[in-house]
Computed example of a mutant assay.
Amino acid sequence: MKLFQHDYFPYITGDRVSLRQIKDADLNDLIEISFYDAIQAKTVQQAAEMQAKINQDYLDGNSIHWGIVDNVTDKIVGTCGYYRGLDKGEGELGCVLLSQYYGKGYMTNGMLLAIDFGLNQMGLKRIWAATSQQNGPAIKLLERLNFVKTADLDDDEIEYELKQTNTL
């Protein structure tokens, strides 16, 4: 089941950041945050292979993966997207930020755009996220975005779900 049908990859513009498709030219800057099936890329070639799989997942309607771009510098600062659950009308929201951009609000801005798109364009009924219990910055981010803890998972992970209000 495909929740979204686009003739083009969705480009989402916000005040500070935009979400766009990752290009081959971006891969060299993204090696440290390029992952697929929890495996990290070590080379540009591996990052390209992973990105090809990610692009195919999008075409198959199984996920959507954006680069988060600083609107002033036009540099990708991180990635975010929906990676599981789309066939059930829900989405697991995940994100990774390049270390030099930690603590500057980029991820909050990017995730807000992704949440709005998930709810209003994709029609998701549930948005959730999972992280390690030791990942304090991710937990703070999720709580700031109105996620609430819903479960303790295996492997020291915890699950959060977006608490939807009429203000989103």
Rank of each mutant, 00 (worst) to 15 (best):
A48W: 04
A138C: 12
T165R: 06
L19M: 03
A138L: 04
A38R: 15
Q21H: 05
I22S: 06
M111I: 12
L168E: 15
S18N: 03
Q5E: 12
E143C: 02
Q51N: 15
L98H: 03
R84M: 04
I68N: 02
V17C: 06
W128S: 13
T79I: 13
Q5H: 10
Q134A: 11
M50W: 05
D26S: 06
N55P: 03
L112M: 15
K140M: 06
D24S: 14
N62C: 11
S63H: 01
A130S: 15
L19K: 02
Q134S: 14
I139F: 01
Y101Q: 04
S63C: 09
G91Q: 03
I127C: 05
K88A: 13
A47E: 10
D60L: 09
T167Q: 11
Q21W: 00
K75V: 06
Y11W: 08
N166V: 12
Q164I: 11
I31K: 05
Q46R: 09
A130V: 13
L93Q: 07
A151M: 13
N71D: 08
Q121R: 11
Y11F: 14
I33S: 06
Q40M: 08
R84G: 01
Q134K: 10
E90K: 14
D155T: 08
T43Y: 03
Q45K: 15
F4A: 05
L113T: 03
G110K: 00
Q134C: 07
K104E: 08
R126V: 07
Q21G: 05
N55V: 15
L162G: 06
L124K: 01
